[in-house]
């Protein structure tokens, strides 16, 4: 009995002492030569599985590849969802989150963020003939969103009389809208356009309403890794000034694409 107790204690002590020693993530990444980014795999055009190549592709993947190139390392991607991205980052399974994540104060308590790399507003996606014009029309109705997102909370605050139904991903929420299970899907305008334009009949749907909230996307970085954060911020700014950012943006959101959204904001640039 006693020996057993000793063994258990020893294992516990070992496990606890294995807690992260003071590390410098940036140096680690350089040494490994690999930057591991958590990206969406169900969110066209930010990140989704391409039918032909079966690889995850998208705006955020291209952006991360460019950042990794600037840092002189290879990019490895791992799929995340709205509810798994922060735990995976804090656990060190990924180095950076590039998954349509809004920079919020609440989240900033747990992780750090890069400067804004994409800016959008939270709006509503509805059926065109459904008679919904703004969030006010949704009292007593069902709204679809995704688990662990800011949209979920914002919608509840903006329309307390609605029921928010949260799915694993936004396309599932959109499917629920198509089938009439919810009256609206709410999240960032860029995602809503992506959902709408991906559909067989985009004209049946419309993005409506005034902005429920501003949604600046930042790349999520583990708390207190300032060297890594600097490297990523500098890479982002360089990409913008070199015009590489705009090139990637136009590839996914340009005029000729299914997801056309004009580039109306400018990145914060440090001299």
């Amino acid at each position: 009995m006693k020996r057993f107790a000793v063994a258990v204690t020893a294992i516990l002590v070992l496990a606890l002492s294995a807690l992260p020693a003071l590390a410098n993530k940036f140096e680690d990444i350089k040494k490994k030569g690999v930057l591991v980014a958590g990206v969406k795999d169900s969110q066209p055009p930010f990140g989704y599985v391409d039918e032909a190549s079966k690889q995850i592709v998208g705006f955020e993947i291209d952006l991360m590849a460019a950042i990794a190139e600037k840092m002189g390392v290879k990019l490895e991607i791992k799929p995340v969802t709205s509810s798994t991205r922060i735990p995976m980052l804090s656990q060190g399974e990924i180095d950076v989150v590039a998954a349509t994540m809004t920079h919020s104060r609440e989240r900033d308590k747990t992780i750090d963020y890069s400067i804004t790399y994409f800016s959008t507003d939270q709006k509503l996606l509805v059926k065109k003939d459904g008679g919904i014009k703004s969030i006010k029309d949704l009292a007593g109705k069902k709204i679809g969103s995704a688990k662990g997102s800011t949209s979920e909370k914002n919608a509840k605050a903006a329309q307390p009389q609605a029921t928010i139904i949260s799915f694993e991903t936004y396309p599932e929420a959109f499917l629920a809208l198509k089938q009439g299970k919810v009256e609206a899907v709410t999240t960032d305008e860029a995602i809503l356009h992506g959902l709408r334009n991906k559909d067989d009949k985009p004209d049946d749907f419309a993005v409506v309403g005034e902005a429920i909230s501003a949604e600046p996307y930042g790349l999520g970085i583990v708390e207190n890794e300032s060297k890594l954060r600097d490297a990523i911020n500098f890479a982002l700014m360089d990409l913008w000034t070199e015009g590489k950012y705009q090139q990637i943006y136009n590839k996914w959101f340009g005029k000729d694409t299914k997801y056309y959204i004009p580039l109306t904001w400018t990145m914060e640039l440090w001299p």
Partner: peptide, 23 residues
Amino acid sequence: FIIGVTELTKAATQINNRTMNAP
């Protein structure tokens, strides 16, 4: 599927989320 392992069910939802016309 729920923790993002790309096994059969997750693969199916990925395809479903991209196509959205044949659940």
